[in-house]
């Protein structure tokens, strides 16, 4: 019976908007080995809202071009296809969750999301991982399941926050108590629906237990550690004011000692200042603190 209730709740995820078909086409084209800038540009520019947000983002200090990119073709050439793919995916997914009610502090949520993405990217560079751009997207979207809960189950979401406050427990514990499932299961389901790369799906689904990932355990472990560091550094808010326990298996998967983290902190500070401009992809009325 309980399983039926959970299954029906998860099916409601299908009610959420899909990512626009242009995005899938662009993402598909970006993977083709012989794709041209002209072909990509003509596909993406069918959606002028996305084009304008891409240009706003790429001209922000996040990418460091500072107003020098005037059109989409330039953005594709200067940033590279992976970075543009991730920008398109991030913008279109963020668009789906642009209005979550006046009682939700979206600014603090997105600061935490961006912070986790930045920390993932910094660690990925230090560890010399390939596909560091995917690490940023995984970090940015790791808590997307929480936004699904707010959108689809708003009354349950406020019960969850009440549990966190009154019992001093983590948000994931409160989600399991109120909903019978948590944001990682929901996030994984969303990432499947959006056909994100398998390693990103896993990072959303296993960032609290990365040893369970199959495709790319290191990516899930990086998101796990980055989420913890983001909370320890008090960047934004993930729903509670607690630093989660890091299992020593996470450091074993990454092949690092704890002292390695100290070497990342200065870069995190520098990158975080630039990354706050990522918030420019939102309009002012999309980002609010509770009144």
């Amino acid at each position: 019976m309980k399983q039926d209730i959970l299954a029906r709740k998860l099916e409601r995820i299908d009610d959420l908007p899909s990512i626009p078909s242009m995005v899938f086409e662009a993402v598909h084209l970006l993977h083709q080995p012989d794709i041209t800038v002209e072909r990509l540009t003509s596909s993406i520019q069918l959606d002028q809202a996305i084009v304008s947000k891409i240009l706003r983002l790429v001209n922000s200090s996040f990418y460091g071009f500072q107003g020098r990119i005037g059109n989409l073709s330039q953005a594709l050439v200067l940033l590279g296809f992976n970075a543009v793919r991730n920008a398109i995916l991030s913008i279109s997914i963020l668009d789906i969750f642009s209005d979550l009610g006046k009682d939700f502090d979206s600014r603090l949520f997105w600061l935490h999301a961006i912070g986790t993405g930045v920390i993932c990217q910094v660690m990925g560079h230090q560890l010399k991982y390939p596909r560091v751009e995917n690490l940023f997207v995984a970090g940015l979207l790791h808590d997307i399941g929480k936004l699904v809960i707010i959108k689809l189950f708003p009354e349950d979401f406020f019960k969850i926050l009440k549990e966190v406050r009154e019992k001093d427990i983590s948000i994931i514990e409160a989600e399991r108590a109120v909903l019978g499932m948590d944001h990682t299961e929901i996030g994984y389901r969303m990432a499947e629906k959006w056909k994100l790369p398998q390693e990103i799906q896993e990072a959303l689904g296993f960032h609290h237990c990365p040893w369970n990932a199959k495709e790319n355990r290191a990516m899930s472990a990086t998101v796990c550690l980055s989420n913890c560091l983001c909370r320890a550094l008090d960047i934004g808010c993930g729903g509670d004011a607690l630093v989660p326990e890091i299992d020593p298996k996470v450091l074993t998967i990454l092949g690092i000692e704890p002292l390695f983290i100290a070497g990342c902190l200065e870069d995190i500070d520098l990158e975080m200042e630039r990354a706050k401009s990522f918030l420019t992809i939102f309009n002012e009325n999309e980002l609010r603190s509770p009144s």
Partner: peptide
Amino acid sequence: DLIFGQSGRLTKPI
């Protein structure tokens, strides 16, 4: 295994 990364800043405790 990585003990400390290349771009890390050294301090007395480290």
